[in-house]
Design a protein around this nucleic acid. Structure first.
Lengths: 110, 110
DNA sequence: TCGATAGTTCAAGTTTTTCGAACTATTGAA
DNA sequence: TTCAATAGTTCGAAAAACTTGAACTATCGA
């Protein structure tokens, strides 16, 4: 198994981050990670019926864009948002995205 | 020539908008439109050496994601950001993106 | 009506995304 | 220590999306 590649904070690219967030599956993963701070892949995609190879692709893309940090722990691969680094490089971006994504699920607090 | 399709404000999808913004060419177009309020395609891609068919593809994608509004005026196709609608649907998103994009060009106000 | 400019359409080549099948890694029991 | 089960990974091929050149349409001014 190849080691995970995480781009250093200073090398995060805005367009890569936006691209990574610009997919409904990945957006749902990011929302799940935002709710829980740390999750194994299987839990982060909970409810999404997707082949494991496709899930893997999405996690890799998120990781290589610098959106998530990944580490191994036993049988699990644990993921978390790189919140601090994202906030430092792109102030307000993640907040705006998550707010809009949550709003889309829970329209206008009825 | 087919009529332009603009999704209504209420149907803008967060992931489509993020996807549209997640490309360096399109991000530059959006920055140019942000500086100038209205621009023909040719001016909005000023400086980017791209085939016209590729430019066309990017403008269409931005339009169909709801990021820009397009109208015809003489020989020109005039584009503008759908700022108000984007701000209403996704508060703070465009500002955060544009701020980060400008920051990337003019790093940390040296 | 012609030429020039601005953008559009189409088709083909390249790149990404998706997904099934087979694989590796770790854990908990027997 | 071996086995079965769980969690992800890798590979290869099919489907979708991006890029581009070439040929096209639309508008304007001479």
């Amino acid at each position: 198994m190849r080691p995970f590649h995480h781009p250093p904070a200073g090398e995060l690219k805005l367009e890569s981050v936006l691209y990574a967030l610009g997919d409904s599956t990945r957006l749902k993963i990011v929302q799940a990670l935002n709710r829980s701070s740390e999750l194994p892949c299987s839990a982060a995609v909970c409810g999404l019926e997707l082949p494991k190879s496709t899930q893997h692709h999405h996690f890799r893309l998120l990781r290589e864009a610098g959106v998530i940090f990944t580490r191994k722990s036993g049988v699990y691969i644990i993921n978390r948002l790189r919140r601090d680094e994202l906030d430092a490089q792109f102030p307000g971006l993640l907040d705006a995205v998550l707010a809009a994504a949550n709003e889309a699920e829970q329209p206008t607090q009825a």
